[in-house]
Amino acid sequence: MSCLRVLILYFNTMKIFTALLLFFFTAGKSHADIVVIGNLKNNLQSLNSVQVEDIFMGRTRSLPNGHFALPVCQSTLRPVFYQKLTTKPIEQINAYWAMLAFRGQISPPMEFPDDNSVLSIVNENRDAIGYIDSRNVNNSVRVLLRLN
C-alpha cells in the first residue's frame, strides 16, 4: 500500500513539474513581441489595437490624423501579427482578403519579406504603417503599438 502511495505522490510531483516547465517555455517564446511602427515625420504618436485592426483589415484607409494610411505586412510575422490582432487564424484572414480582392475594390496590404525591408519602407513613406519584431526596432521609426 505504501509503495502505491509513493508512486502516486511521485506522479503528482512530476505533473506539477511538467506544468511549470511548459509555462516557462511558452512564456519565453512569447517574449518576442510585435510592434506596430510608423514614420517619424508622421505626427501620429500612438494607435490602439482597434485602430490598427481597422487599418490592416481595410476597414479604414485613413489614419486618425486624416492621412491616407499605407499598411505594409512582414511575411514571416504575418500569421502571428493577425493572430494577436484579431485572434483569428491566418487562413481566415486570407479568405477575408480573397473575398474583398475578388470584388476588386480593395487589396490586402503589401507584403515584405523581413523586418528590414519593412523598416526601410516605413522610413521612406510618411504614412506607412508596418510591424516588426520588437527586437529589431531602432530609432528611425516610431513605435505606435506594442502587441504581446
Binding site: M57, R59, M99, L100, R103, Q105, I106
Partner: peptide, 14 residues
Amino acid sequence: PTAAIAVYSNNVQI
C-alpha cells in the same frame, strides 16, 4: 459572416 464582412469593410458589392 459575409454580411458582417460587407458591413465591416463597407463593401457595397458584397
